[in-house]
Amino acid sequence: METQTDIHFYRIAEAIEYIQRNFKAQPQLDEVAEQIHLSSYHFQRLFTEWAGVSPKKFLQYITLAYAKKMLKEQQATLFETALDSGLSGTGRLHDLFINIEGMTPGEYKKGGEALSINYSFAECPFGTLLVASTAKGICHIAFADDAQEALSELKAMFPNAHYQQMVDMQQQNVLYIFTHDWNQLHQIKLHLKGTDFQLKVWETLLKIPKGQLASYGSIAKQISRPKASRAVGTAIGDNPVAYLIPCHRVIQSSGVFGGYHWGSVRKTAMIGWEAAQTDQFNV
């Protein structure tokens, strides 16, 4: 016997399939809702609860993925890409890339060719870090257990950028978080790209105080997506700035620490170290 949950799942799966199949026609909310026999209001609410994003935003992601493939693999012009993606012109293509990717279609096509990235390796209490920055702020931090592999992963994100191994003031400010009182640190600027949902999750992680923990469910509630714990977990796993955006402070509601992109042992060490640091300041 099918439960209401099963029915909702099949309806959303059908809606996703319809959007994927017809994205070039840029279907409106009413059209998709009609396909699964729901009112626009109930479809919007149900889809957002299950997918973690609105139907409109999901359509934008599908369209963007196709546009990126055209620009990269087929070397299509911006005009050709816009029209074949179902957009009315290059202006809408430009807005789509700016809103989601944080760069213009031309910049994406060039693979960050105009971008200058400084990077350096540094030691912290939890191993070697690779820290990278642009003129706008910190764009990447990762634990570099294998330095060459970590550098290759960074360069894969911006394959045509200009890289220079050097330490700048932004990187130095980041490293101070391991040796200074956080309340006394200079403001650290971040230069990140991500979806609206990812950025919202990462922003929420920054609000978790040092020495404290939060659950995936509590993060989902804070961003007004109480049923999107799984999507929250995915966004946390995609965190491009290790430690500074403290995804290590998010654990399962059962109290189990759970996995971590850079190793569960490292996550446990971080949580313990921060708890000790907090106790020291409270003495």
Rank of each mutant, 00 (worst) to 15 (best):
M166K: 14
M166Y: 12
M169W: 12
Q170G: 15
Q170T: 07
Q171E: 11
Q172I: 15
Q172F: 11
N173I: 02
L175Q: 13
L175M: 15
Y176H: 15
I177S: 10
T179C: 00
T179M: 04
H180Y: 09
D181G: 13
D181E: 13
N183A: 14
Q184L: 13
H186N: 14
H186Q: 14
I188W: 03
I188N: 11
K189F: 05
K189P: 03
L190P: 15
L190G: 12
L192I: 15
K193N: 13
K193Q: 14
G194W: 10
G194M: 09
G194L: 07
G194F: 09
T195P: 06
T195H: 09
D196R: 13
D196N: 12
D196W: 10
V201I: 14
V201L: 05
V201T: 09
W202R: 06
E203L: 06
T204S: 10
L205T: 09
L205R: 10
L206C: 13
L206S: 09
L206T: 00
I208T: 08
P209W: 10
P209T: 15
G211S: 08
G211E: 01
G211M: 04
Q212A: 09
L213S: 09
A214Q: 11
A214P: 11
S215E: 03
Y216W: 04
G217M: 07
I219T: 05
I219P: 09
I219A: 05
A220V: 06
A220S: 12
K221I: 10
Q222D: 04
Q222N: 12
Q222S: 14
S224E: 13
R225D: 01
P226C: 06
K227H: 13
S229K: 08
S229I: 06
R230G: 02
R230H: 09
A231T: 08
T234M: 01
T234S: 03
A235W: 01
A235V: 00
A235M: 06
I236D: 00
D238Q: 14
N239D: 03
N239V: 02
V241Q: 03
V241S: 06
V241E: 00
A242E: 01
L244K: 09
I245L: 07
I245T: 02
P246Q: 02
C247D: 04
C247G: 08
I251Y: 01
Q252A: 09
S253Q: 14
S253A: 11
